[in-house]
Design a protein around this nucleic acid. Sequence first.
DNA 1: AGGAAAACCTGCGTGC
DNA 2: TGCACGCAGGTTTTCC
Length: 272
Amino acid sequence: MPELPEVETTRRGIAPQIVGRRVRDVRIYDRRLRQPVPANLERLLQGRRIDAVERRSRYLLFRMDTGTLLVHFGMTGSLRAYAKLPARVPHDHLDIVFDSGVALRYHDPRRFGLVLWIPAQSPTHPLLAELGPEPLEAGFNAKDLQRALRGRTAAIKLALMDNRIVCGVGNIYANESLFRARIRPTTAAGRVSRARLARLVEEVRATLTEAIASGGSTLRDYVDSEGTAGSFQLSYCVYGREGLPCRVCGTAIRAVRQGGRTSFYCPRCQRR
DNA sequence: AGGAAAACCTGCGTGC
DNA sequence: TGCACGCAGGTTTTCC
């Protein structure tokens, strides 16, 4: 499910329901994720109050006085809030029940996701230590981006999806942002001019902001914390549109493989 | 050291 | 109907 807009949509849906609430019960059904769900998670969370729900890159961070619960959705993970939990279905991994009766359920068929505990006194967690700037914050700008990409021969799209350069931009939104900035995904990152990088920064911001406003994208199964589907997939210009006419010029959209992922672009609108 | 490829998983659509 | 194959929103590891 998750690029930044889907994680942020989930955060906004969940936070008002659980901030200030205490964990009444934790039930774990399947610990198998990218790393096993911690053996003592139940004890760590029991009775703790949620002070805040934050997002860094595609990580959700549930802040408590004793530490932070870190949740990542991998490719297919999701977190939903329920006033009353429904019957379990395959790939439900765990429930966190609060004193209000609201419960969060984590579901992840492919198990690329993560549920980890970070103690309050520990240094920056390795997963968070090397992350680049947030794309919607001032740290993501043409000047710093140009410095980061100087001399790089890797394709601009791969750089855009590199969490050390800028975090949270995945395959869908990298493709869409590059189309809107009129930059071909295969162009060497170090060869994109400052002016074009400035345009790219603006288009990444606009694309993500619009996607969040649409509640994210629902491709196969993603729904927000309330179970509502996102609608940004209806706005795609290039993603998943190989062979279909460009919405701007009518030229057939092309697909190419980069870094094991499919890139989509308009050969006429994105010349270099 | 940068960069490409493979690995980790399950589910679904397609084509034979 | 069944089966083989390829592909999918991410990240890490391995290999050149």
